[in-house]
Design a protein around this nucleic acid. Sequence first.
DNA 1: CAATCTTTGTGCACGCGTTCACAAAGGCAT
DNA 2: ATGCCTTTGTGAACGCGTGCACAAAGATTG
Lengths: 253, 253
Amino acid sequence: MATGRTHRPATRSRGIPEATVARLPLYLRALTALSERSVPTVSSEELATAAGVNSAKLRKDFSYLGSYGTRGVGYDVEYLVYQISRELGLTQDWPVAIVGIGNLGAALANYGGFASRGFRVAALIDADPAMAGTPVAGIPVQHTDDLDRIISENGVSIGVITTPPGAAQQVCDRLVAAGVTSILNFAPTVLSVPEGVDVRKVDLSIELQILAFHEQRKAGEDATAEDEGAPPMRATPTGRKGPDGDMPAVMPA
Amino acid sequence: MATGRTHRPATRSRGIPEATVARLPLYLRALTALSERSVPTVSSEELATAAGVNSAKLRKDFSYLGSYGTRGVGYDVEYLVYQISRELGLTQDWPVAIVGIGNLGAALANYGGFASRGFRVAALIDADPAMAGTPVAGIPVQHTDDLDRIISENGVSIGVITTPPGAAQQVCDRLVAAGVTSILNFAPTVLSVPEGVDVRKVDLSIELQILAFHEQRKAGEDATAEDEGAPPMRATPTGRKGPDGDMPAVMPA
DNA sequence: CAATCTTTGTGCACGCGTTCACAAAGGCAT
DNA sequence: ATGCCTTTGTGAACGCGTGCACAAAGATTG
Ligand SMILES: NC(=O)c1ccc[n+]([C@@H]2O[C@H](COP(=O)([O-])OP(=O)(O)OC[C@H]3O[C@@H](n4cnc5c(N)ncnc54)[C@H](O)[C@@H]3O)[C@@H](O)[C@H]2O)c1
Ligand SMILES: NC(=O)c1ccc[n+]([C@@H]2O[C@H](COP(=O)([O-])OP(=O)(O)OC[C@H]3O[C@@H](n4cnc5c(N)ncnc54)[C@H](O)[C@@H]3O)[C@@H](O)[C@H]2O)c1
């Protein structure tokens, strides 16, 4: 499997930590808003609040980019917008292909938030022959058979997968073979990719489950000292696992 | 603002680290697949591969839940499915409300992946009067005016926000006031919520920007020492910063 | 029942990320 | 200039998460 050497020497790039990279878009969004209001400068404190982070963290993040700030004053908004944009590679245009034009794929295609940054929906691809030619968001859907050609002709290096889970890996393989080196996956599947290809996933179901966990915990705290159904009662005793019949029976499919 | 005391005592719950909680849904998904194939047991190695993680990490994660495994054999699939489901709070039903039934909201409403776990779309809410009553995915859209009533009547504690960014904070405030304590936000905005309310965000644009960063880095490694294009504008007088002097101290009037 | 083999559970070390706290830098008023 | 005030940039401490490596536990076989 591909994860064998998933070890990216990490931020061997030029120092910028991954966690910082993940926050740069957040700063950029806040700065863009300030820019539109013609605000000339911001302090780390103000910007941090706007971005929803700690001010010390923000300053440290910026320190990785360089010394762009004026002590006693703050940061020049326009200048910082440019620096972050450049660092993120947004000064150039990124053609993106979306594969799987169903409910979600169509919604993404219709989303205007792409172009606002340097992203452009260059192609929509689906396996359903009936969809071929049909325009979605003004862009005609093309058939999977031409995937390879479409990717190379448009110079697409970023692909978005919104197919059913079962088709995701296959689509992924084809995208990679065609030259795509970054994938945003919405299908609830673990994708295997060769080294050098980045994959990020968006999984709605996982997010909800994490919320449910905390929700349950919150509910449980109120009823503290309250009987908690069946205390997990560990296994160690010797009686081992399965505290008797607590096990099976009810199981959410 | 509510972020003042955003510090969460973190995993004060009862040990389970946040990182582990975030992976439990991943394990659960892999286990469910095994269960459907009637596989009785799995080793940490096999399951880890299926979930796309390190086997040591998986074992450590499970160790927080208890000692559910048999040395020399592995883990009982059914039993583990049950334990994780219970830990995540999926043995109960979670009514969810989606606010903002546009492109994305409608796609989510139509998504079947909800019900497969313990989540149920209990209500669809939109501010557009023209949509009121119109069924989406078989569920009639209700008007924002009744938000408070809808939330309490259905006992909704998890809300999903898919409105335009400008309306997100307002919608969030109303949801919280109505009793919602967990929010999944798709709008590109930083939400302020009182303590005790959890917020998770899904931001497509941020994911793409992170991919773009790495993409640019990959491209840059090939053609190192290539021209850096566009001249920035320095605003601060004393032009002299810039990390490695790569920044021409251009000083427009 | 003893030997052997497999796999778990975890102690330990390490590295990343976060936060604190403060000296230094710069603006500004006098 | 000089002194004061604001805010940056960062050294250092700390805590969390990760991965290694191995002893212990249990299954299995003879
Ligand atoms: N809709 C949501 O809100 C949502 C939320 C979370 C996750 N997801 C995931 O996103 C994916 C898409 O969801 P959806 O609701 O849009 O599904 P959908 O069924 O509406 O759309 C899937 C599309 O993919 C196409 N397709 C199937 N196989 C293909 C292939 N091999 N190559 C190219 N195209 C192919 C189909 O023709 C269809 O148009 C699924 O994996 C789903 O689990 C969806
Ligand atoms: N569509 C996507 O693929 C996508 C991707 C990433 C992020 N987003 C974000 O998700 C959100 C929704 O995107 P969309 O494409 O579905 O937009 P949309 O315009 O299609 O839908 C927005 C819906 O929200 C409703 N609405 C507006 N104000 C409201 C209010 N105060 N209360 C209740 N409902 C209200 C509108 O009537 C409309 O139906 C946006 O914030 C967008 O930035 C969308």
